[in-house]
Every structure is written in structure tokens, then in C-alpha cells.
Design a protein around this nucleic acid. Structure first.
Length: 948
RNA sequence: GCGGAUGUGGCGUAAUUGGCAGCCGCGCCAGACUUAGGAUCUGGUGCCGAAAGGCGUGGGGGUUCGAGUCCCUUCAUCCGCACCA
């Protein structure tokens, strides 16, 4: 009887659901283990084959831990607030909640079919009021807290008030404003990334190369009143605690860079003929004698005050120029040096010399003080600026060649530097800081690159911020008043006056019927910043998580997800965890002990080339002319000079046919394509069309066109490996494989593809090997139609095959090397098949070790073996090393490192005995060619090497 | 520019961590069976060579009895950050 995976998989999925097999024990004496996946955003394209890669790995680990006697928490949920559902709502008018529910239903169906061991009773959806009530609750706690630098943790704002002198005498508004400067959730005027097309502000990590990460729309800098979270208060702890967690070095490094701690000193420069001073921040106070100018950001507040009359026009022009240069341009031409002299000077604090003040847009207004002391000799940016404007370059650290480039290294002896002369850089830094502090010119200081996190989004589909305004003063709702539900609106667009969509809610959407609520909603990362806690106690209506639950589950033991969340989600969730810990609400300071980043499974998009031709120039009744184009599908090598415009678009991969390693799009698929893209109006450019009928209209006439440039009914398409996405039309869902080869096959195959962390394009060419393996495994337990199991004692080779596998699989799982375990299962089954093994003593443990990988077939075999309970809670077989012990070893005998032949020796032989034995061999004499060996190396159980 | 990762047969990959390079699978070749199937089974398959043998882990150099593995150097590809003073 062949294994019927369709029946078996359905049966066991139903069994697990009915028996709540994967519900962790409530009051358990077992050790706990918490395995978490980054929950998905339920997109309209459905789950693609990349999602399950991480889920399968974590599921294997969770199932393995159960077999090892752990009480395992392995939940799943949905990050269900977000932009795509809202964009869809804007286009169709359909409430995002409906879209979201439909998408979730599809995800759930797909997930269920893969046989994950999730405890679905703990499912969370960030867009559910039961859930976002507690997201709002945490926001309220943030609002009510400040960061006390003395205790180095967050405290209730009430502990701050006594420290604020004259607080009582202030008006209510003044009190509110003052407290907002300290609250961890605060409202302020902030420079934000404003995206006009999306109608919202974006966080820094949502902006890539000056355009929005989602959609690629331009982003501009704008001053807006915004809610922010004071993550910078935690900068130092977020940085230091990285050392204590087992995360990949690349993620930790990305977070370190993002936090960007730099230690240095502030230093004041007196402005000549003025009482004002310019304060700069520098990490190289040792180079203070190398300062030859000072550069201010164009936005610096002192600019208008110090600019001299003669420079006024030039400076104003420059400021206008700098302002209008969009962020994107500034990033695009980093190399372009721009600046202007203000006409003013500062006095060097040590030498008393006159130093010019310049403006330059290489200085960022938002970092440090927005001013730098320029040391062109030892800072490459200052060097470039100095060279460009012909400013003096002074060498103060020996070791470089300043005629070629600046010498930025922090090594060498100080020169031309008065009291620092002769010191090494490290010592000079210390001495310079001491001197600066002594003379009251500044003091040692630490700066961070990390900015506070802007927390408001001018969008509909997010958690409402639980704030209302009374006489212009922002106040948070009482705990009893949440959840503050999302109101109904007529459209999901900003109002005509530019207010966020929530402003469209009816006028009854008011606190106590009169006070306006905040119209911004929370960003996408709000709900995901604490969801790992909610799973511990998902149904709790009284608290975000109970003390009992969090004291038991603590934090995530193994977290698997994509590396793209390095500086977003993974930083915010650490921040919230530390905050909740400060408040004494949870016992842990980090969300996850271990983090693994699964690689991305890329799609292979297929791009078809399109040539645009000018058909005619149409003149309308007003006399305006409009060019009329016609587009034709052409081969990729079609010369672009033979058309007005040539471009390529991705087409659905299932409309492409492969022939001899090349890909083609046939004309009979065009109709199918127009269903996906109604705007397309293509036909394939054929010789006839080109040469005969429309030749004149194409406005090209380049003489003889090779016929090979044209095909009658197909064009070649080019494959491109890139991220799977709906817009690239390259999404492959796991559904087909589950349908055709089964969930176990998908699970094994995704693991078999290669190391978990590695990215690779999806390719099913090897799947038949895995499918064959599953059938072979089944046959091992069967003799033709019937189950064939013997209770006889296993033989030594059988035991060896099994225990070798137990050893390897345990090692592999614990090292997250899932690909190698699949090969080892294959090796084991091959060996046992060759041995014709049908012993219960072997086949029972084999079913258990394979169960985490292929749970359906394992359950089915387990049941056939006579068991009445799920294999999920069987005991992982104990390794017995004695079965692996060999008595002899076949030594490779090599000469000068080249293996020539093999010779078996008993392992009890000493090195000396082997050495003696080897020399007596006929073969040895042959390779020695009569020479005497210089040296013989015998490594026990490894190798014999004879050096001639 | 800085940081991270990767480079091994036709392809996906493996190598007990310094000890026989290429396990397992795909593909390919040959054969068996056959109700001719994209089924199943058996054998072969790094490259050059008829063979003996030689060459081989991106390139170059080094350490070592011995290097895919360690060190130096260089190239290529991918990802992240990017004027952070």
C-alpha cells in the first residue's frame, strides 16, 4: 500500500486541532521553552514559500523540545494593522477590517495545511480591540513615565514633579508643556519624513534612499507636531545589553550602528566681536590645534546673527539652495561639496587665532550641535571641504601624507599642538578633554545617532492613540476608557484641510462628547513591540499579561524571523521590554534570548520586453498635439534605437514556458495576461507587422532588419532573481506542493534546500528526491500491502545505523542545521533498507526522531505501530554511544600528504605499533622507492602520513 | 566609504572543526523491468587522460607532516548603513 499523504495529513491535522495537542500545560513541572516566529502581515497575495521556511524550522525545534520533555509555547498570530489593507480600502472603499479578515482566513488555511504545531487558542491579531486595548494601555504608561537618569530607569512622572522648581506656579498649559519634555511618549514639533503621496509621516527606517520603503514615493522633511517615543533615553542600555543576547552578529552590528554611540567632548568657540559662542561636538579633541575653520549646518540658529553685510546675499542664496535640495538629492550626490563663507570669525580657545566660520550642508543640523570644528588634516570630509574652498590644512598628528589625503587614523604622535606635542592620540584625547573642562570651554559628552521614534501616523488603519485634547492640552484616557475604538469614516483619505482620516469621524466621536481625540494612529510597529508577551496569556481581559504567566514563560528562548527587521521591530521590541521591566511589570529586560534570521527565499521574476512605437501624432480640437503610441512585445535583444522607448515589465510566472533553459511568452497567453493587467494592450511584434503594414508609422527606417529579431508567436523573457512580491508577479505559494506532494514533503524540502540563514531562489527541481524519500520511509515499515514489523532483537549494524542518526540529528537540531538532518534521514533509511531492517526496536525510535520534520507520516506510522497517543509527546530516543564504537579503523596511508592506499588496523594498537606495521607493507615499500622516511605521522583513528 | 555575509562538480549542497574534498539529493549516462508513465529498480557520474597518473574548494602568497578549514593579500557577488564630526 502506497502512503496516502492526502488522507493522512488531513486526518492528523484534524486530530491535533480536536485534541488541542499543542496546548502547553498550565501548571507544569517541566522546564519551559518558548519558540516564536515573527508573525506575518496578512497580505492579499497569501502566504508564499518564503514564509514557511522560518516557520518550519521553528516548528521542528518546538516539536523536538516537546520530545525532549519541555513544556513548549509555540504560538502564531497576525500583525494585521498596516498600509496595504488601507491602500486597498482607499481604492475600493472596502473597510480594511474586511480585507484583513479575508486575508487572515486564507493565511490560516495555508498554515493549517503545513501541519504546524501552533497553539491557536493563543492567536493574537494586532488590529483586534481586545489586543490593541493593551497596546493603548502601554502607550498610557509611556505617557505617564519619564526617564530618571539617576536611577537609570523609567519612573512615574509623579517622581519628577518635585524636582521641577516652581512647577506649582506654572499655568496648566505650561505644566503640560514642561512635562511633555520629559514624558517617554510626548508631543513636540519635530522634523519628520513627510510623504505627500501616502499622506503620512514615516519613521527613518521606513525611508530608503529618500523615498518611502513601501511604494517608493518621494519623502520630504517637514516640521510637524508629532507624537514621539523617547527611545533615546534607552540608547545606552539598548547598546550594552546586546552583549548578553545570542543574536546574529550582523543584527547586533546593525543595531550598534543605528544607535551610533560616539564619545567626545563639547567645545565652545567665542565669536569675534560678539558675546555669542559656537558650541561644537568632537570625538577628536586631540586635534584641536588643527582647526582651520568652523562649519555650521545651513539651518544653524546663529547664522543670521553672525553673517556679515558683505556675505549676506551669498549666505541667503546658499541657505535657500540647501533647503530646496531634497533629501534624496543630498544623498545622491554625497560627493558634491557645497558651502559658503559667513564673513564671521571665531577665536581659537587655545591659540587665540582668528578662524573663519563657514556654512556647509555636509554638517547635519540634527546631530550634535549642528556645528563642527573642521580639522582638514585629520577628517576626510573637512579635508574635501578645505581642498574645494582652498582653506588651510594643518598637520597635528604625524603619520600621514596630507598632500594626498587626510590622515584619519587614531594612531601617531601629536605635533604642532602646544601642550599636546609628543603624546599618542589616545593620551592626547584625555589631556585635551581635561584641559577643556579645566578652562570651562566644554565637557566630555556622549552623542547618539539614534533619534526618538516618531509614533504618529496620519493613517486610518492603526491603533488610535488614546489621547484627547482639553483646551489644547493633550491628556491620556483613563484605563477604564480603553480600548478607544477606531471610528467609522466615510473615506480612508485625509480631509480636505489635510487632517488625518480619523478627522472624518462623526462629531459624536469625542471624549465625553466634547473633547477631540488625537487623529493620528500608531505606526505599524506598535503592536509588534510587545506581542511576545501577549501570547503568554492571550485571553486575559484584566491585564496585558498576568504576573504568573510572564514569571513562568519569561521571554522567548528561540525567535526566528527575517533580518530586514534589524533596526525596526527588533529595536523597538527591546525598548518596550526594557520599559515594561522598569515599571516592574515583567521580569525580563530582553524579549528574546536567541535570534535566528532565516534567509529570504527569492522569486524568479520573468520580465518581458516592450517596445513603444509612435503611431501618429493626433491633433485635438484645441490644436494641441498628442503623440499616440503603440506597444509591442519584443525579444530582449531588440535594439532600443529602433523604437521610441523600450522597457520591461514582470509578467506572471505561470504564463511563461521554459524551453531548453530559456523562457518564452507565447501570444496565446496575452489574453490571459490582460486579465491580470487590464491596461496592457500588447501584441507581439512580428515581421509582417513591422515590415509590411505599419512600417511607415513606426517612424523608423534603418534599412534591413534581421528577421531573427522578430518571432511570429513568442518572445523570450528574462529571468531575474529578486524578492517575492505581488508587484513582481513572482510569488509562489506553498499550496501546489502541499496539494501534489504533501506537507511533509514541503517541510523536508524547504529544509533540504540549504542552510536556514542563506538566501536562495525558489526552485523545485530537486523535490522529487524528497518525495521519493518519504515513500521509501513508508516502505521500510511495510512489506508490499501490509505493515511488516518484527519484535526480534536488532542486529549490531541496525543499531549502529539508528544511533548514528540519533547522534547526528540531535547535534543538527541543536545547531539549527536542518538541511543536514534531512540528508542524514535519507542515509539512515537507505542503510536500513539495505539491511532489510523491520525491527520495532529500530523503527519506533526512527519514527520519533523524524517526527519533528515530517509529523504526519510519523503519526501515521506511530499509530500503525500500535500506539494510541500522539507521537508529539513520545520520548526522544537516548543515544547509546556503545553501538557506535568501532574496533578497527581503515587508515588512509599517505605519502607527503597524498593518500595512496588504505590499511585497516585494530584501534587498540599504539602509534608506534602502527608505524612499525605500516613500514613492513609491500605497498609502503613501493611508494618509498627505496628512500628512508624522514618522519612518520600517525594520528589515532585518523590518518597515517609518511614524509619522504 | 563603513559594516555584515558568501564564493566548493552541470545544479542545490556536505565535510566529525587542521586529517581520505565532493556525503545526500537533483540532473546526466548506461542497463533491467514494463500495461511506454514525468513510474520503479540496479550501476556509473569532479576535471584532464586510453591508462599509469596528474589537476582540483574565486586568484596569489604563507604557516604546517598535512589547509576548503588557520594567517596575509587580492578579486567577485549579495545584503545593511551611509556626510553622525
Amino acid at each position: 500500500m502506497e502512503y496516502n499523504f492526502r488522507e493522512a495529513e488531513k486526518k492528523w491535522q484534524a486530530y491535533w486541532a480536536k485534541n488541542k495537542t499543542f496546548k502547553p500545560e498550565e501548571k507544569s513541572t517541566k522546564p519551559k521553552y518558548y519558540v516564536l516566529d515573527m508573525f506575518p502581515y496578512p497580505s492579499g497575495a497569501g502566504l508564499h514559500v518564503g514564509h514557511p521556511l522560518g516557520y518550519i524550522a521553528s516548528d521542528i525545534f518546538a516539536r523536538y523540545k516537546r520530545l525532549k520533555g519541555f513544556n513548549v509555547l509555540h504560538p502564531m498570530g497576525y500583525d494585521s494593522f498596516g498600509l496595504p489593507a488601507e491602500q486597498y480600502a482607499i481604492q475600493t472603499g472596502q473597510h480594511p477590517e474586511i480585507t484583513t479578515k479575508t486575508n487572515i482566513a486564507r493565511y490560516r488555511e495555508q498554515l493549517d495545511k503545513i501541519g504546524f504545531s501552533f497553539d491557536w487558542d493563543r492567536e493574537v491579531r494586532t488590529s483586534n480591540p481586545d489586543y490593541y486595548k493593551w497596546t493603548q494601555w502601554i502607550f498610557i504608561q509611556l505617557f505617564n513615565s519619564w526617564y530618571n537618569p539617576e536611577t537609570n530607569k523609567a519612573e512615574n512622572i509623579s517622581t519628577l514633579i518635585p524636582k521641577l522648581k516652581g512647577f506649582d506656579k506654572l499655568s496648566e498649559k505650561e505644566q503640560s508643556d514642561l512635562l511633555l519634555e520629559h514624558r517617554l511618549a510626548y508631543l513636540s514639533d519635530t522634523m519628520v519624513n513627510w510623504c505627500p503621496q501616502l499622506g503620512t509621516v514615516l519613521a527613518n527606517e521606513e525611508v530608503k534612499d529618500g523615498v518611502s520603503e513601501r511604494g517608493g514615493y518621494p519623502v520630504e522633511r517637514k516640521l510637524m507636531k508629532q507624537w514621539s517615543l523617547r527611545i533615546t533615553a534607552y540608547a545606552d542600555r539598548l547598546l550594552n545589553d546586546l552583549d548578553g543576547i545570542d543574536w546574529t552578529e550582523s543584527i547586533k552590528e546593525a543595531q550598534r550602528n543605528w544607535i551610533g554611540k560616539s564619545e567626545g567632548t563639547s567645545l565652545k568657540f567665542k565669536i569675534e566681536n560678539s558675546t555669542s559662542e559656537i558650541e561644537v561636538f568632537t570625538t577628536r579633541p586631540d586635534t584641536v590645534f588643527g582647526v582651520s575653520f568652523v562649519t555650521l549646518a545651513p539651518e544653524h540658529e546663529l547664522v543670521s546673527q553672525i553673517t556679515t553685510a558683505t556675505q549676506k546675499t551669498a549666505v541667503e542664496e546658499y541657505i535657500t539652495f540647501a533647503k530646496n535640495r531634497s533629501e534624496r538629492e543630498r544623498m545622491a550626490d554625497v560627493k558634491k561639496i557645497t558651502g559658503v563663507f559667513t564673513g564671521a570669525f571665531v577665536i581659537h580657545p587655545f591659540t587665540g587665532k582668528q578662524i573663519p566660520i563657514w556654512l556647509g550642508d555636509y554638517v547635519l543640523a540634527g546631530y550634535g550641535t549642528g556645528a563642527v570644528m573642521a580639522v582638514p588634516g585629520h577628517d576626510s570630509r573637512d579635508y574635501a571641504f578645505a581642498k574645494h574652498f582652498d582653506l588651510p590644512i594643518i598637520e597635528v598628528v604625524a603619520g600621514g601624507d596630507l598632500s594626498k589625503e587626510s590622515y584619519d587614523a587614531k594612531e601617531g604622535k601629536l605635533i604642532n599642538s602646544d601642550f599636546l606635542n609628543g603624546l599618542e592620540v589616545k593620551d592626547a584625547v584625555k589631556k585635551a578633554i581635561a584641559k577643556i573642562e579645566e578652562q570651562g570651554l566644554g565637557k566630555g559628552k556622549t552623542n547618539f545617532r539614534l533619534r526618538d521614534a516618531i509614533f504618529g501616523r496620519q493613517r486610518y488603519w492603526g491603533e488610535p492613540i488614546p489621547v484627547y485634547y482639553e483646551n489644547g492640552i493633550p491628556k491620556v484616557l483613563d484605563e477604564k476608557e480603553i480600548p478607544l475604538l477606531l471610528p467609522e469614516v466615510d473615506k480612508y483619505l485625509p480631509t480636505e484641510t489635510g487632517e488625518p482620516p480619523l478627522a472624518r469621524a462623526s462629531s459624536s466621536w469625542r471624549k465625553d462628547g466634547k473633547h477631540e481625540y488625537e487623529y493620528s494612529t500608531m505606526p505599524g510597529w506598535a503592536g509588534s513591540s510587545w506581542y511576545f508577551l501577549r501570547y503568554m496569556d492571550a485571553q486575559n481581559e484584566k491585564e496585558f499579561v498576568s504576573k504568573d504567566a510572564v514569571n513562568y514563560w519569561q521571554n522567548v528562548d528561540l525567535y526566528i524571523g527575517g533580518a530586514e527587521h534589524a533596526t525596526g521591530h527588533l529595536l523597538y521590541v527591546r525598548f518596550w521590554t526594557k520599559f515594561l521591566n522598569d515599571l516592574g511589570l515583567i521580569p525580563v529586560t530582553e524579549p528574546a534570548k536567541k535570534l535566528i534570521n532565516q534567509g529570504m527565499i527569492q522569486g524568479v521574476s520573468k520580465y518581458v520586453s516592450i517596445a513603444s512605437f509612435l503611431l501618429e501624432i493626433h491633433t485635438d480640437e484645441n490644436g494641441d498635439t498628442h503623440p499616440l503610441f503603440q506597444n509591442f512585445l519584443v525579444n530582449p535583444d531588440y535594439p532600443s534605437e529602433l523604437c521610441v522607448h523600450k522597457y520591461s515589465v514582470p509578467i506572471p510566472i505561470d504564463l511563461v514556458k521554459e524551453e531548453n533553459g530559456k523562457f518564452y511568452f507565447y501570444s496565446d497567453a496575452i489574453e490571459e495576461y490582460t486579465k491580470v493587467d487590464v491596461l496592457s494592450n500588447w501584441s507581439i511584434l512580428t515581421k509582417d507587422i513591422f515590415l509590411e503594414e505599419n512600417k511607415e508609422n513606426f517612424k523608423v527606417n534603418k534599412g534591413n532588419i534581421e528577421y531573427s529579431n522578430f518571432f511570429e508567436n513568442k518572445v523570450e523573457v528574462l529571468p531575474v532573481v529578486e524578492k517575492m512580491s505581488k508587484s513582481k508577479r513572482n510569488v509562489v505559494t506553498p499550496d501546489t506542493i502541499v496539494e501534489q506532494q504533501g506537507a511533509d514533503c514541503l517541510r523536508l524540502y524547504e529544509m533540504f534546500l540549504g542552510p536556514l540563514e542563506q538566501s536562495k531562489p525558489w526552485n523545485t527541481s530537486g523535490i522529487s528526491g524528497v518525495s521519493n524519500f518519504i515513500r521509501k520511509l513508508w516502505r521500510l515499515y511495510h512489506n508490499g500491502e501490509t505493515l511488516n514489523i518484527s519484535n526480534d532483537a536488532a542486529t549490531k549494524p541496525e543499531l549502529k545505523a539508528l544511533h548514528k542518526t540519533i547522534k547526528k540529528i540531535s547535534y543538527d537540531i541543536e545547531n539549527f542545521s536542518f538541511n543536514t538532518s534531512v540528508s542524514n534521514f535519507m542515509i539512515c533509511v537507505n542503510e536500513l533498507t539495505d539491511l532489510k531492517c523491520n525491527k520495532r526496536e529500530i523503527l519506533e525510535p526512527l519514527a520519533i526522531i523524524i517526527a519533528p520534520y515530517a509529523p504526519h507520516i510519523a503519526e501515521e506510522l506511530w499509530e500503525k505501530l500500535g500506539h494510541t497517543t500522539s507521537i508529539s509527546y513520545a520520548t526522544f530516543p537516548e543515544l547509546n554511544e556503545s553501538y557506535l564504537v568501532e574496533s578497527a579503523f581503515s587508515y588512509p596511508v599517505s605519502f607527503n600528504g597524498k593518500t595512496r592506499f588504505f590499511q585497516e588496523y585494530d584501534l587498540s594498537l599504539t602509534k608506534e605499533q602502527i608505524e612499525k606495521e605500516v613500514l613492513t607493507l609491500e605497498q609502503t615499500q613501493k611508494y618509498l622507492e627505496g628512500k628512508t622516511p624522514k618522519k612518520i605521522i600517525v594520528v589515532h583513528n585518523k590518518i597515517v602520513n609518511i614524509v619522504i
